[in-house]
């Protein structure tokens, strides 16, 4: 009987949730947003900004956790289409898994926008709009900063983001594109940091220092959080200032490190800007300004933030 009681309580809970949901004003257009990396710290300000931009435009935005799983996202999107949302914002877990989802979206005729990570090349020509950064360009900016800092003969280590993700793959691609032009620069090691976890980054950096000692002259990290973990290892080994570093993100963590001189620069990837562009993109599609197959790109800015221009860009990150 207790089980019955428990489940009745559950049901009451569900219904009361609905009561809250239905109390909101009608009229507004409804948009559904499946965020594959809902729980990542990067997405906290992204979600918040998306909500704010939606509210400004009289849009009722629902954000769900895509659990980094294309299968989960496909189910969510099918249900959302069935529920009759006016628009969908899709943050893909990975490019390969997006094929069926993009096809489903196209067939349904619903207005949608892709944000942050690109979809698979086989369906890329069918999408209306993508809002996000140019990760390859971000890598190039970091690569140029590296050459500017350490000259044409140097030894470099990299700490990359989670393997297989669009940012990790393409930031490294852009970075190596620049570095490969200088035969004197050697990449000693480049390892993925699982889950972009600072603690793992710290351990890998400790082991880099053991392995290469003071040979390391430059560190490239794919995220300010990763840099922040690695910096603890650098500081403990007394190498602060000896290892120059460039990161990506330029969020509060990165900006603090730039100000303290631990980090030379960080390439901006603004979660706030991305959240805002995502909502603006889906509005443009709902209004009919952009059609499927237009392949518009609402590009996030990616300047290099250093001590010189930090005042200008502070607060753009999170």
């Amino acid at each position: 009987m207790k089980k019955l009681l428990a489940l009745i309580l559950t049901s009451i809970l569900i219904v009361s949730c609905f009561a809250v949901a239905s109390a909101e004003a009608p009229a507004a257009r409804k948009v559904f947003f499946t965020n594959a990396f809902f729980t990542a710290p990067f997405c906290a300000p992204l979600n918040a900004q998306a909500m704010a931009t939606a509210a400004e435009n009289n849009i009722e935005l629902t954000i769900v956790d895509g659990q980094a799983d294309a299968s989960v996202q496909l189910d969510q999107i099918k249900t959302a289409i069935d529920q009759g949302y006016d628009g969908i914002i899709y943050f893909p877990a990975d490019a390969a898994g997006s094929i069926t989802i993009v096809n489903t979206l196209n067939e349904s005729g619903i207005a949608y926008a892709i944000i942050d990570s690109k979809v698979d090349a086989s369906v890329a020509e069918t999408i209306p709009v993508f809002a996000g950064p140019d990760n390859v360009e971000m890598g190039r900016v970091a690569g140029r900063a590296c050459v500017e800092q350490i000259g044409e003969n140097a030894k470099v280590v990299c700490l990359m983001g989670s393997a297989g993700t669009d940012p990790a793959t393409n930031r490294q691609k852009g970075f190596e594109e620049i570095i490969s032009q200088y035969p004197g620069i050697e990449i000693l090691a480049a390892q993925n940091v699982d889950g972009w976890d600072p603690a793992i980054a710290m351990s890998i950096m400790q082991d880099y220092i053991t392995r290469f000692g003071d040979e390391i002259e430059f560190l490239f990290t794919h995220d300010d959080g990763i840099f922040q973990g690695a910096q603890q290892a650098i500081a403990a080994a007394g190498l602060t200032g000896k290892i120059k570093a460039v990161s990506t993100g330029a969020n509060n963590v990165g900006v603090a490190a730039i100000k303290s001189g631990e980090l030379y620069g960080s390439v901006l990837h603004s979660a706030k800007e991305e959240g805002q562009l995502g909502v603006e993109a889906v509005i443009a599609v709902m209004d009919g300004e952009i059609k499927n197959g237009d392949q518009e790109w609402f590009k996030c800015m990616s300047p290099l933030v250093t001590l010189e221009n930090v005042a200008e860009w502070e607060g753009w990150g999170w």
Partner: peptide, 10 residues
């Protein structure tokens, strides 16, 4: 304290 930051999914 070790990594000087806290991540909600740490």
């Amino acid at each position: 304290s070790r990594v000087m930051s806290a991540n909600p999914t740490a």
